[in-house]
Amino acid sequence: MGFKLLSKLLVYLTASIMAIASPLAFSVDSSGEYPTVSEIPVGEVRLYQIADGVWSHIATQSFDGAVYPSNGLIVRDGDELLLIDTAWGAKNTAALLAEIEKQIGLPVTRAVSTHFHDDRVGGVDVLRAAGVATYASPSTRRLAEVEGNEIPTHSLEGLSSSGDAVRFGPVELFYPGAAHSTDNLIVYVPSASVLYGGCAIYELSRTSAGNVADADLAEWPTSIERIQQHYPEAQFVIPGHGLPGGLDLLKHTTNVVKAHTNRSVVE
């Protein structure tokens, strides 16, 4: 069995187990497998329904001669939608809004960016022009300005110390501490036991640490421990890039980060 097929099978099995364990909360999309990078042309966006009122959005972007996937989250909030992270750029984010209108038909009224990198804030200006209120932590807003990236308009308070959590509509926002970046936030959907790890969490097929220019490698494993301790009931975990899975993604990420750190020390 090929690795790609095995990865998709694991996603399907995880979703099936969740649907059985929580039949009222989960209505997993039966329309197909989780979209992969090879299936999404740059400039297009796919939506994948995880649970009743919960979707991931998947886009792709060219970077350094390669094409990478990027995940975000959409959560229903009454007759409105909360968006977590842009679709990595203005063109993708405009396509995301169009796809949401086509498939869901509810307005996106608020959006949260989970850290300051372009795959999370690139497209904020498109959201703002569409009347979406954009939010991020003060740290993310400051770092985005320093980096020359787009800056969300509103500040999220109460997320300055490791372990801080605040309720934001249908989700809980959690600051686990520094990891992929010093400002990275985690998003949890309690009604569906869905954990969105953003770039602080890796997919299972990833074996290298990737972009760690703004990471705190020493603190990252401790931050992941905080996530595990705060959300032990999480059933569906979405990484910032690639295929979702279960809580095993947290341990896998820790292993990859520690291996990278150990290699760096040896070198």
Rank of each mutant, 00 (worst) to 15 (best):
P176K: 01
A94I: 06
P239V: 10
F63M: 14
G32W: 13
H57N: 02
V28Q: 07
V265W: 08
I58C: 06
A179T: 02
G148Y: 03
G43E: 09
G78K: 14
A234V: 05
W88L: 01
G245Y: 05
E101N: 03
E157A: 10
I50P: 14
N92F: 13
T261R: 08
R226F: 09
S264G: 14
F168G: 00
R167Q: 10
G198S: 04
K102I: 15
L5Y: 05
F168A: 05
G177S: 01
Q229P: 06
Y196C: 02
F3L: 13
V37C: 09
A25C: 10
L9E: 07
I151C: 03
E267W: 13
R110C: 04
N149Y: 14
N149F: 14
V171R: 00
L73E: 02
E172I: 06
S137L: 10
V171D: 00
S27W: 10
D64R: 08
L5A: 07
Q61F: 11
G240M: 02
R128P: 02
K251N: 11
E33R: 10
I20A: 13
V37Y: 06
V108E: 01
D214E: 08
G123T: 01
V75W: 00
L217R: 05
T153V: 09
A133C: 14
S31N: 03
A179V: 02
I201Q: 00
A130W: 12
V132N: 01
T134G: 04
A59F: 06
G131R: 09
I100T: 07
L82Q: 12
Q228R: 12
S31R: 13
L10P: 06
L127D: 00
T253R: 01
V194H: 02
R128F: 14
S62A: 09
N71L: 03
N92A: 08
H154D: 13
Y231C: 09
N184A: 14
P244L: 05
F26M: 03
P232K: 15
V28P: 07
L156N: 02
E267H: 15
H117P: 00
D64A: 09
G78T: 13
D85G: 02
R206P: 03
T261N: 03
W220C: 03
K4Q: 14
E157N: 15
V54C: 05
P41V: 09
L127R: 01
A15H: 04
S181K: 00
P232Q: 04
R206A: 04
F168H: 06
A94C: 09
V166K: 13
P190D: 10
N255D: 14
A98I: 00
V45F: 06
V194M: 14
L173W: 01
G105P: 12
G158T: 11
A213H: 06
E101L: 12
V237C: 06
H154S: 11
P239I: 02
L13Y: 02
S181D: 00
E33S: 11
V166Y: 03
A129D: 08
V187W: 00
D183Q: 00
D118C: 14
F168L: 06
